[in-house]
Each structure stands twice: as structure tokens, then as C-alpha cells.
């Protein structure tokens, strides 16, 4: 049976909490104080990485484009918090956050990849849209919207055939939910009860197409019913809320009870990519969502003083500056190795 959401989208698409739990409910006891701070710092590390990425681009020190997840950090860190080493990740083009939140991730290797260096996760061949860390079962970001969804069926089948209790986190956006790949993938995972958790990060826009114009239903998670799996919509800017719904989904998946569709309501603060003039939305709308900043919200939950909060951000900036220094000191790939790695 489909579970109903604790949070629903209001008419303007803003998340609206149906109840405000007391503080004791907010920080999971299993995190502890240190674990909670660690997660705050992880979100700050993602934010710092992406702000630096943006800066490097505007200074002309990297080329190409990038898809920033600034404003969506709680979804990545909340999801990973409910998973464990050995689980699998299939990520999106807006995937810096999930990659950094994943197990064993190293922001130095990520930044080096972003800067196209041989020391990067993918030897500079992949770049922002294709960062993977296969050794850690991070099966990569994907330049194709919903491109990872069919692959997650195979990962789920593989887990089932190998009879392990791993799970696969398969991330996509509201745009991806309208592809045929979404339908084929979720249906196959459902009929075979595969341990796949479908995370739809609904950041309200598929490039310029607003969610309200691209769906004739109020919530993406409503689609779960059509596949006979649980669907839940959650405030994606609340790291604890994301973690809680993931805990349920992960428990079901590990127990062989099949996939779950989780819709995390969030917002992309930046444009779709670097070419986006953002003519399709207002500054006021962006400001309203920025008031829901997942990092500041969690800082308030933790009752941090401004100085404490800023101190953690200084830590994150320091780590990212070191990653940039590492990357700049790293070698460029060699042209005579351009054909390496096509075939095994």
C-alpha cells in the first residue's frame, strides 16, 4: 500500500510541514551530537564545493558547464545517512552533492575531476556530469536525464541474484520522472521486488519547465500507486525528514520488500546550467525558497550560535581550498593516452 506523505505541496509548490515535531524528535539519537555536526559539515562541504566550482568557472579556470545543487544538500546527505558501505548509488547530472555525501568520497579527487586532471576520480575523462567512484559502489553521475534509472534495475537484479542485502539508491529529478525510462525502470523493480530506492529530487523545474505544467497530478510520489509500490513526499530541505523516510524505505528494501518512490521537495537556487538566464521564474520565488536553506535550518535545529555555524563553514571552505590546490598541482592527462580505457 502506498503510504501518504507527511508533507504535501501547497498550491505554489512550497513545502508545507503538516506538523512541527519537538526538538527531541529532530536529531536522530543514533547520530548523536557529533554525527549531527558531521552531517551539517557535509552539507556545508557540498555548498562550498559548488560555490567554488561556480567561482572557478566565472574566472575561466574550468570549461564546459555544470549543474549546481545549491539548496538541495539535505536530500543528498539525508539519503546517504540511511545507507551503508556496500550500497550502490546511481546519480544525476546535478550530482556533486550525492557524490560528496557518498561513502569514502574525497573532495580532492572530485575537484581534480571537475578540473579535468589525471588525478581525478575519472582521470579527467568524465568531468562534472560523469563523476563516479566505482570502488565505493558510486556508479556515477549521468549526463542523460533518467539515464541511471534502467541501470538501477540491473543493479537490483544483481543484488537479488547474489543474494546480498545491499540496496541501490537511484536518483533523478522531476524532469526524469516524465521519461519512458522512469516507467520501465520502476515497473520492473516493482514486479521483481528489487531493492531499489527511487529518489526523485523535485526541485520544481525541468530546466525551464515548471513541475506544475509538466504533471497533471499534485505530487510525483502519486505515481507510486500505479506501480504498486509505496510512495512518499518529504520536505527535501529537512535533512532529518529525508533520513527518516529513507530509513523506512531502506529497511523494506533490505528485507526483500521491494522498491520505494521518495519525492524530496526542494529547490534549485541556481539556474539549470551556466547558460540559464532564469526567465521562467521570479527573484521573489527564489528568495522564498532560500529562506528554506537546508543548511541554516539544520544549524537552527542544532541551536548553533552564528560563530559556531560560521566556524563549520570556515572548515568546509578550507577543505575545498585544499582540494583546489591539490587539483591545480595535479598533472593534465596526456594526449598519447587519449585512447586508453575504451575497452577492458
Amino acid at each position: 500500500m502506498a503510504t501518504r506523505s507527511k508533507v504535501s505541496a501547497s498550491a505554489n509548490g512550497q513545502p508545507r510541514a503538516s506538523k512541527k515535531p519537538a526538538r527531541a524528535d529532530l536529531i536522530p539519537t543514533e547520530w548523536g551530537e557529533a554525527g549531527a555536526i558531521e552531517r551539517l559539515r557535509k552539507m556545508m562541504l557540498i555548498r562550498a564545493f559548488e560555490e567554488k566550482a561556480e567561482e572557478l568557472f566565472s574566472l575561466g579556470r574550468v570549461h564546459g558547464t555544470m549543474h549546481l545543487s545549491i539548496g538541495q544538500e539535505a536530500s543528498a546527505v539525508g539519503a546517504a545517512s540511511a545507507l551503508r558501505v556496500g550500497d550502490y548509488l546511481l546519480n544525476t547530472h546535478r550530482g556533486h552533492g550525492h557524490c560528496l555525501a557518498w561513502f569514502g568520497s574525497d573532495e580532492k579527487l572530485m575537484m581534480a575531476e571537475f578540473m579535468g586532471k589525471e588525478s581525478g576520480y575519472c582521470r579527467g575523462r568524465g568531468g562534472s556530469m560523469h563523476i563516479a567512484n566505482v570502488d565505493a559502489n558510486n556508479l556515477g553521475a549521468n549526463g542523460i536525464v533518467a539515464g541511471g534509472l534502467p541501470i538501477s534495475v540491473g543493479v537490483g537484479l544483481s543484488i537479488k541474484q547474489r543474494a546480498t542485502d545491499q540496496v541501490c539508491l537511484s536518483v533523478f529529478g522531476d524532469g526524469g520522472a516524465n521519461t519512458g525510462a522512469f516507467h520501465e525502470s520502476v515497473n520492473m523493480a516493482s514486479i521483481w521486488q528489487l531493492p531499489v530506492i527511487y529518489l526523485c529530487e523535485n526541485n520544481q523545474y525541468a530546466m525551464s519547465m515548471p513541475m506544475k505544467k509538466a504533471f497533471n497530478i499534485p505530487q510525483v510520489s502519486d505515481r507510486a500507486k500505479g506501480y504498486g509500490i509505496p510512495g512518499v513526499t518529504v520536505d527535501g530541505n529537512d535533512i532529518v525528514a529525508v533520513y527518516r523516510v529513507f530509513q523506512d524505505a531502506v529497511a523494506r528494501a533490505r528485507a526483500g520488500q521491494g522498491p520505494t518512490l521518495i519525492e524530496a521537495l526542494t529547490y534549485r537556487w541556481r539556474g539549470h546550467s551556466k547558460s540559464d538566464k532564469q526567465a521562467y521564474r521570479t527573484r521573489d520565488e527564489v528568495k522564498e525558497w532560500q529562506a528554506q536553506d537546508p543548511i541554516r535550518r539544520f544549524g537552527r535545529v542544532l541551536k548553533l550560535s552564528d560563530a559556531e555555524f560560521d566556524g563549520h563553514r570556515v572548515w568546509a571552505d578550507q577543505r575545498i581550498n585544499e582540494a583546489v590546490a591539490f587539483s591545480e598541482a595535479s598533472a593534465e592527462p596526456k594526449i598519447d593516452q587519449i585512447l586508453e580505457g575504451i575497452f577492458a
Binding site: 556508479l139 534502467p150 541501470i151 540491473g154 543493479v155 544483481s158 525510462a181
Partner: peptide, 9 residues
């Protein structure tokens, strides 16, 4: 896609 994902894992 199922072939790709299974092969990768």
C-alpha cells in the same frame, strides 16, 4: 539498462 547495471556489479 538491466544488462548494464548487472554487468557493472
Amino acid at each position: 539498462g538491466a544488462c548494464v547495471g548487472a554487468a557493472l556489479t
